[in-house]
């Protein structure tokens, strides 16, 4: 029951880029969701195969391990766009105007630093498992049925790459907000206090209830 989006939009360039990027990010999170569903089906096949056909799915654990990074990491940028990563907003929640945008600029910059360092580290981690000269380009394989692991490892730098683009865009939007002392800037998640956020969640639930009633 997560909150609806708190990101405003208009005709400015920064907002247009925001929405284009959102399309990519939404596709990525949807792939993550479909993968959760796939994980469920995988278990159904495994259990069904074992109990009814005495033929368990070969490499069931290996396949789960391949799918998990897609679920866990692929949508990281979408969640950032929606302001969904958890934080303590006791201090930020008390800030207003330029002070708030400055604080957001600072933490976004810090997150950009983390994202870029991890992009580097996870890319190298991928490269260590990848060798174009080997069968299936594989230099690292899973335990049971020997699946190449590089595709699953590649998920992380790809997701972080999109996150880096998103963070740069947000830096731009926050600096505009700071420069013009905007009250409600576009392309960044607005700091709803927890109560407003909860109200949006509640609305979402209510709208579903209503749909059901109709």
């Amino acid at each position: 029951m997560a909150a609806g989006s708190l990101v405003l939009s208009d005709d400015s360039i920064v907002s247009r880029i925001d929405r284009s990027l959102l399309r990519v990010e939404y596709a990525m999170i949807l792939v993550g969701g479909l993968t959760v569903f796939g994980l469920m089906l995988l278990a159904v096949f495994s259990v069904g195969g074992r109990n009814f056909l005495n033929a368990p799915l070969p490499g069931y654990v290996d396949w789960i391990e391949q799918l998990m990074p897609v679920i866990a990491v692929f949508g990281v940028s979408y969640v950032r766009r929606e302001g969904g990563h958890i934080r303590m907003d006791i201090v930020v929640g008390a800030l207003k105007g330029r002070a708030l945008w400055l604080a957001e600029l600072a933490t976004t910059l810090a997150i950009l630093l983390v994202a870029m360092l991890l992009l580097w580290g996870s890319w190298e981690h991928f490269l260590r498992s990848f060798d174009i000269s080997q069968p299936m380009w594989s230099r690292d394989s899973s335990m049971d049925i020997g699946l190449p692991i590089w595709p699953a490892k590649l998920v992380v730098p790809v997701a972080l790459g999109v996150l880096v683009v998103r963070l740069c865009l947000q830096l731009w939007a926050y600096s505009l907000a700071f420069k013009h002392n905007q009250a409600r800037p576009v392309a960044v998640p607005l700091l709803a206090d927890v109560a407003t956020q909860a109200a949006m969640e509640a609305k979402q639930v209510s709208s579903r209830e209503q749909e059901e009633a109709n």
């Binding site: 074992r50 033929a55 368990p56 070969p58 069931y60 654990v61 290996d62 049971d144 049925i145 020997g146």
Partner: peptide, 26 residues
């Protein structure tokens, strides 16, 4: 024949040749 066994990799493959059913789990 038909015995379900937790065995991975080469041992699992070997067990399969006598009809056992290898399953992987942590």
């Amino acid at each position: 024949d038909g015995l379900t066994v937790r065995a991975t990799g080469g041992i699992g493959a070997a067990m399969e040749t006598v009809g056992a059913v290898p399953t992987s789990m942590s």
